[in-house]
Amino acid sequence: MLVTWKYRPRNTFIQRLDPRTRLLFFFCVIFGLTLPDIWDYRVILPLFAMSLTLYLLARIEWKDVKRVWLFIFVLVFMIVGLNALLSGRGGPASVTNTASPVVFEVLGIDVTIAKIWFALTQVVRMITMTLLAIPIPYTMDPNIYGTAFRKLGSSDKVSFTMDLAFRFLPTFARDFTITMDSQRARGYELEKVKGGIASRLRKLAPLIIPVVMQSTVTGEEVIDAMDLRAFGTNPRTWIKADDLRYKFADYIMLGLALILLVGGFVLRFGLGIGEFFIPDFFTNLFL
C-alpha cells in the first residue's frame, strides 16, 4: 500500500492556489532558468528571493522538512557544489575555458576564481528550484495529484501514474526504514560499511535488495487492485475535477509564471543578458 507525504491543510496563500497553478509555476521557473541557460547572478538572485518568499508563505513547519533539507544540503553543497568548485563542469563552457586566476590548488586541481563563482551560482540556482519543489508534496492535497494532471491535459493513465509516482517516495522511505531496522536487528551496521565503491555497493545489498523487492511487489499489487476495479477500460470520471477552479490569484501567478518563462528567453537571446560572468567585486576579493 502506498503512503502519502506529511500533508496537512493550512489556510495559506500557497494552499489556496489551484494545484495546476503551482505545478505550472514550478515548471515555468525551472524551464525559464534552464532552457535559456541562465547563469547571471543578477537574474538568479531575484528569482531566489521570490522562491524564498513563496516558500515562507507556505508556512511549512521546520520539523516536517528538516530531513529533506538535510538531504538537499548534502546533495547540493557536497556533491553539486564541490563538483562545480573542482571540475567547473555541469554548467557553461566559459567556466573552464576562460583563463581565470588560480586561487588555490586541491589534489593537483586548480581552483580558479571562475570555478568558485560558478560553484556559488550553481548552489543558489539549485536551491532556488528546490525552494519551489519542496512545498509541493507537503502542501498539496494528495487526493488531487491525479486530477491536477488530468485537468492539465494528461491522459487518464499518465495522470494516475503521476498520482502513484508522487506517493512512491514516502512509501519507499517507509520500506527502507523497516528493512534497515530488521537488518540492524541482525547486527548490520551501516556506519561500518567501508571499502571501494564496488565493495560498498555489495555491502549495501542487505538494504537495497529487500527494498527493491518490496517496491516491485507493491507495484504488482497496485496493478492487480486497479485491474479488479476496471481501471483503464473506459474513459474515466475524475470525481474531484470540478473542485479545481482558477481564481484571481491563480491568474496573477500564471501571468507571472509566463513572464518568467518568456523573460528568461528574451533576456538571454533578445537582450544578451543571463550568460555566466564573474562580477568585478568578486574578482577583486582575490586580487
Binding site: N143, A225, R229, T233, R236
Partner: peptide, 21 residues
C-alpha cells in the same frame, strides 16, 4: 493493504465507479 490504491477514503471508494466513467 494490497487492495487500496487511493490516498483518502472517499477517493478509494469512488475509484471503481470513476473507472466505469
Amino acid at each position: 493493504e494490497r487492495q487500496i490504491v487511493a490516498s483518502n477514503v472517499f477517493n478509494e471508494i469512488a475509484f471503481g465507479p470513476e473507472n466505469l466513467g
